[in-house]
């Protein structure tokens, strides 16, 4: 029960962080907190928080981002599948390696997201792709520490 509440609280925190307004110049640097939280939970508890969880948070992201419903569902499921399949190894990696893994995943997610937006006729700027990934990698160690603590307490 306490574990589920921790997950819900972390998602609510991610949602609030996602909604904090920033100026247009800083918007490309804003990490996708919801996706980071999904990656984190899927890495540390794939049996409980797997693809269905990623799809549910993706639907929430669709409603928050006002994107066509299903776009972030697809994106979160696609990106969430990698940590889901590799979680057995990833939990034994150190934080730097996981940080690099998250960086690569966010780059993929940005590229795929931009491609899908461009299919819907939305003008996209691929030059903004690395910024969100860099800021996500920078905040990942804090998130990683929190998730490791929760995971160890759970044991």
């Amino acid at each position: 029960m306490r574990y589920a509440l921790t997950v819900i609280f972390s998602l609510m925190l991610a949602l609030v962080l996602q909604l904090i307004p920033v100026s247009a110049d800083w918007l490309p640097w804003k990490p996708n907190f919801l996706l980071l939280m999904v990656i984190g939970w899927v890495i540390f508890k794939p049996s409980q928080w797997g693809i269905g969880f990623a799809a549910s948070v993706g639907l929430l992201a669709d409603l928050v981002f006002r994107s066509p419903l299903g776009l972030h569902v697809f994106l979160f499921v696609f990106i969430g599948a990698a940590p889901y399949l590799l979680s057995g190894w990833l939990i034994y990696f150190n934080v730097i390696h996981r940080c690099f893994f998250v960086f690569i995943l966010i780059i993929f997610s940005e590229l795929l997201g931009n491609f899908m937006y461009s299919v819907w006729g939305v003008p996209v700027d691929y030059r903004d792709v690395p910024w969100g990934a860099i800021s996500s990698a920078v905040i990942w160690p804090f998130m990683d520490k929190f998730l490791v603590n929760v995971h160890n307490n759970r044991r």
């Binding site: 928050v64 981002f65 006002r66 994107s67 939305v122």
Partner: peptide, 12 residues
């Protein structure tokens, strides 16, 4: 203003 769209693709 009480909220801004967090996405750079949707300006609301």
């Amino acid at each position: 203003v009480i909220g801004v769209s967090p996405s750079s693709k949707s300006h609301t």
